[in-house]
């Protein structure tokens, strides 16, 4: 609004008319610079509005749904669903009741899963990127090879893992017990306690190329002479890694670990495809739990409340993480 009045005023002053002088021209050009500075933002407004709508619209809808008693009865006319207040939140946070207990269980599983996946993916990413950095021949080939898991469609990749991990016909059991004789009696990998580790391995396999890619890009920005100088001062590779490489890629690490953690925490496709829709207890991630509560038992209010809780938790986690790492930096 203010821009249009400004434009009106600028247009109202006839060019060249009035007491033309340096005193008059100066505010005019200042105004013009201010206008020019603002122009990009003006261009951004439609996109911004759309972005807000696309991004925050569903979130807001989720928050609204979470305070409604929304089940199949109200689905066709969901805007008329009765007010539930904080009932959904109460049901879900009451860990003595089945719903709350099951949510808490999946929350703990997801937390453990995230810590393991992020730590290992990051470690592999750093190791891979650094070893490739020193390499001359075959670097491009290896880099492409490492990125394959990241480029494959989730379904195709995970279903292949499913075949590998099957008890009777899976390759893993075939190698471990039939060929190497390491295991006696075939173990299960897709049900029971092992399913958690299967899920971790498959997710790490999918996620570490991303860490690798980011760290590799960060390594490019470290100038070679720093290594040369430190080499002349007698620093070995291990010392160089700790004192040069890691500190210099710290800003990338900060973002990378956050992005990895957020993605892993709300991973849905991997457990869904790996376990054929019904994840075993040991590997039931929170997003699967939410899916089951809203889409399979038709309790959308409760499902939304869980999503909101997940959102709040991840936002808090992000906030705390960013504050903590910034202070250190």
């Amino acid at each position: 609004m203010s821009t249009s009045t400004e434009r009106g005023r600028a247009g109202a002053a006839p060019p060249g008319a009035g007491p033309a002088g340096p005193a008059r021209r100066k505010p005019d050009s200042a105004r013009r610079t201010a206008w020019r500075r603002r122009t990009p933002y003006l261009f951004l407004i439609p996109a911004l509005l759309l972005e807000l709508f696309v991004h925050f619209g569903p979130m807001l809808a989720g928050v609204v749904m979470s305070v409604l008693k929304l089940t199949q009865y109200q689905l066709a006319r969901w805007w008329e669903a009765p007010w539930a207040g904080l009932d959904n939140y109460q049901v879900m946070l009451d860990v003595d009741q089945p719903t709350g207990a099951s949510l808490l269980h999946s929350f703990l599983v997801t937390t453990g899963f995230t810590v393991i996946v992020v730590a290992v993916s990051w470690g592999l990413g750093v190791a891979g990127a650094i070893s490739l950095q020193r390499m001359r021949a075959g670097r491009g080939t290896l880099r492409t090879l490492f990125l394959v898991p990241y480029a494959l469609p989730v379904f195709a990749a995970v279903i292949t893992w499913r075949f590998l991990l099957q008890r009777d016909n899976g390759m893993l059991n075939h190698v471990l017990s039939d060929q190497l004789g390491l295991l006696d009696g075939n173990a299960f990998y897709l049900i029971g306690g092992n399913s958690f580790w299967s899920l971790c391995v498959v997710t790490i396999w999918r996620e570490w190329p991303f860490a690798f890619l980011m760290i590799m890009a960060a390594l490019q920005s470290i100038p070679d002479d720093v290594y040369e100088a430190s080499g002349m001062d007698g620093a070995g590779p291990w010392r160089q890694l700790r004192s040069i490489t890691l500190p210099m890629i710290a800003p990338v690490n900060q973002v990378l670990i956050l992005v990895l953690a957020l993605r892993t925490f709300r991973d849905f496709e991997t457990p869904y495809v790996l376990f054929g829709g019904s994840a075993p207890d040991a590997a039931r991630l929170i997003s699967v739990e939410i899916y089951q509560n809203s889409f399979q038992t038709f309790n959308f209010g409760l499902g939304s409340a869980m999503s909101v809780l997940l959102l709040v938790f991840l936002m808090l986690l992000t906030g705390v993480y960013l504050t903590a790492t910034r202070r250190r930096a």
Partner: peptide, 19 residues
């Protein structure tokens, strides 16, 4: 003068595309 109406026109066009 010419420069001054370019931006609002852009906004208008974007709005129309949206509509």
């Amino acid at each position: 003068m010419r420069r001054s109406w370019r931006a609002p026109l852009g906004v208008l066009t974007a709005g129309l595309v949206l509509l």
